[in-house]
């Protein structure tokens, strides 16, 4: 049974199949290389602090919009040019969750960070990345509440 919503489980399974830390790093960088900044139609700098991920040293911002079919679309900005892990996770969250509806995303767990980055991630970095996951879930909850 899938523990994570949407296509995210497929991505996690891809990481789980990799034992070698270097190969895991290469895959993470492949994701980071695909990072696209939030479009100006959604948000312009300076970004409102309400979209800033608390505790994220890479200064990640997240937005959520609704697609025509009711699915959600997540957008990200990472202001620290050295925030490669944050960019990588942003692409993973976008590819894994965008297009799915809020109900499918509400069960998203911060455990995702360990599944993707491994258990020996530093506490500071782990908290920042978990903050990104928590904000994505929070934005999905807001979208769901707006539907009711």
């Amino acid at each position: 049974m899938s523990r994570f919503p949407g296509s995210l489980q497929t991505i996690i399974d891809e990481f789980k199949a990799i034992d070698d830390a270097n190969m895991r790093g290469e895959l993470l960088i492949e994701f980071a290389d695909k990072f696209i900044d939030v479009p100006e139609t959604i948000a312009k700098r300076p970004f409102p602090k309400t979209h800033l991920v608390p505790g994220c040293e890479s200064e990640a911002y997240i937005w959520c919009t609704k697609l025509d079919d009711g699915g959600l679309k997540f957008h990200f900005a990472v202001e620290n040019p050295h925030g490669v892990s944050a960019k990588s996770l942003a692409v993973i969250l976008d590819e894994g969750l965008s297009g799915h509806n809020a109900d499918e995303i509400l069960g998203l767990s911060e455990e995702l960070v360990y599944e993707i980055f491994g258990r020996n991630i530093s506490m500071g970095k782990g908290q920042g990345l978990m903050g990104m996951v928590a904000m994505v879930r929070g934005l999905a909850m807001q979208q769901r509440a707006a539907q009711l």
Partner: peptide, 23 residues
């Protein structure tokens, strides 16, 4: 030596090696 363990892999000074503080 970086905070972000991925940063070295995205590009580094030619000839530089990495020392990761965690590992």
């Amino acid at each position: 030596s970086n905070e972000d363990q991925l940063l070295y892999k995205t590009g580094h000074i030619p000839g530089a090696v990495e020392v990761d503080w965690v590992n």
